[in-house]
Write a protein that binds this DNA or RNA. Structure first.
Length: 437
RNA sequence: GUGGCCAUAGCUCAAUGGCAGAGCGUCUGACUGUGGAUCAGAAGGCUGCGGGUUCGACACCCGUUGGCCACCCCA
């Protein structure tokens, strides 16, 4: 025999075992239900894209994290998808016949070669919902409303969706007189406001050789309290880009006021920055305040991205839920409903002895035909062993059909949590379930 | 990509440079129509991997891989 190979998975990737999968399926199911309730349709795309589809979309830093996946003898340069947004824009450009506004959702894995940490993996699922073909701020309001509805459905209480506008950030740069090449670093510093405070941001900017005068002007704007539309408008009255952005956000604010989303769950925050290069309008990011695990959702408007694939550009907005982080938070806060069990099996049908295999099998199949998840013992081991197995798998009930029960056409139903047992006619088992076991 | 901490039985962790251990879990039996409790017993290890120092390394040194944490960035 050849020497054994250490079984391992690639760095930052993991197996998800059945009990965890049940939780995941619950979370994904909830998200999907809300997506559909808002009129989004499912889409699937290949995990591999032609490399050139992905290049030049995310910005230089992000591009370094893209995995290449070319076959040894392949003629095409392929990469694992980095997100679901660029594949969407590719689809929209390829199928002009799609009815607009095109609303699609996609729940699928993406790959980023980052250094793994808690809540950060190299292979992770994103749940995206986007609206293609609407310039209206109502589309953005729908996205923000949906973010709230999804998180609320999952049981989150203390979360805030922060809203800003790329145009305002651009305006801030212009207003402060910051040279273009400094803008990227500038935004990154601004984004840390909440984390390192006003002084921390100033310090970082000073270190980056940004003139004090520029810093002063920026901080004057960025340090404004949330939702301070009036002050911002006054200060930046002569910066057209900022005015456009403010107009958009004020419209969005009006729509959100009528949306039913509680005021505590969204906030206009002029210091929130999103890194991806393609955003052009409103941007969103949701953070939970309880355990600090980074952002749970991120998104925004990217009106020009589709234009990279076709002559005509199509205004688009949407968001992405980071389901891995959502799950990590839900684990930490034990947010799963009791109905999410540790197994899908509802009843374990024991096999008393070889002679009674056929009886147990018929009973199991009858239950299955009635829509009940029934597992059949595969060995006529001692009853003790079979019950132990069922208990270890956390199956709620066991059925015992020995010679006595079978002679009377009955079965013993054992509640494995309480130990309580009841005799039920074999023909009545499925009905007993429907009445609520 | 930069820096720090860590890696011993399935899990949680011990072991002055001197015989690799405990608790929990697993398996078997006491219990041939019933899991959890109790008791008795058993299995389980190239101490992540590769070098080095040493009479002797789980321990010290170097490298490497992986995990975690902080940056960077991000879902």
């Amino acid at each position: 025999m050849s020497p054994k190979i250490q079984p391992r998975v690639p760095r930052g990737m993991r197996d998800i075992l059945p009990q965890k999968m049940l939780q995941r399926q619950y979370v994904i199911g909830q998200v999907e239900k809300v997506f559909q309730r808002f009129g989004f349709e499912p889409l699937q795309t290949p995990v591999l894209e032609l490399r050139e589809m992905l290049m030049g979309k995310y910005g230089e830093d992000a591009e370094k994290l893209i995995y290449d996946a070319k076959h040894r003898e392949g003629k095409e340069d392929l990469s694992l998808r980095y997100d679901l947004t660029v594949p969407l824009t590719r689809v929209v450009a390829m199928y002009p016949e799609l009815v607009k506004p095109f609303k699609r959702y996609q729940i699928a894995p993406v790959w980023r070669a980052e250094r793994p940490q808690k809540g950060r993996y190299r292979e992770f699922y994103q749940c995206d919902a986007d609206i293609v073909g609407s310039k209206s701020m109502l589309a953005d309001a729908e996205i923000v409303t949906m973010i709230y509805t999804v998180l609320e459905a999952l049981g989150f209480k203390s979360f805030v969706t922060k809203i800003n506008n790329r145009k305002i950030l651009t305006g801030i740069g212009q207003y402060a007189g910051a040279p273009n090449e400094m803008l990227g670093g500038l935004y990154r510093s601004i984004d840390k406001l909440e984390k390192i405070g006003v002084d921390g941001v100033r310090e970082e900017m000073a270190k980056a050789q940004i003139p004090t005068k520029v810093i002063d002007r920026i901080m004057e704007l960025v340090a404004l309290p949330p939702n301070a539309f009036g002050e911002l408008r006054e200060l930046m009255g002569n910066v057209p880009a900022a005015m456009d952005g403010l107009d958009e956000l004020e419209q969005l604010a009006t729509f959100l006021g009528d949306s039913g989303v509680p005021r505590a769950n969204y906030q206009f925050d002029f210091s929130m920055v999103r890194g991806l290069a393609y955003y052009t309008g409103p941007i969103y990011e949701t953070v939970v305040t309880e355990p600090k695990i980074g952002s749970l959702t991120g998104g925004g408007r990217y009106d020009e991205l589709i234009g990279l694939f076709m002559n005509q550009s199509i205004p688009t907005t949407g968001t992405s839920f980071g389901i891995e982080r959502i799950i990590d938070v839900m684990d930490e806060l034990a947010m799963y409903p009791a109905s999410i069990g540790k197994t899908v099996t509802q009843v374990f049908v024991t096999v008393f002895n070889r002679d009674l295999i056929g009886v147990s099998m018929r009973v199991a199949n009858a239950l299955r035909a009635a829509g009940i998840n029934a597992e059949l013992a595969l060995d006529a081991d001692g009853l003790g062993k079979q019950l132990k197995y069922a208990a270890a798998k956390a199956i709620p009930f066991a059925l015992i059909i020995g010679p006595d029960e079978n002679a009377a056409q009955q079965a013993t139903l054992r509640d494995l949590a309480s130990g309580e047992q009841t005799l039920i006619a074999q023909s009545e088992l499925a009905n007993a379930w429907k009445r609520g076991t």
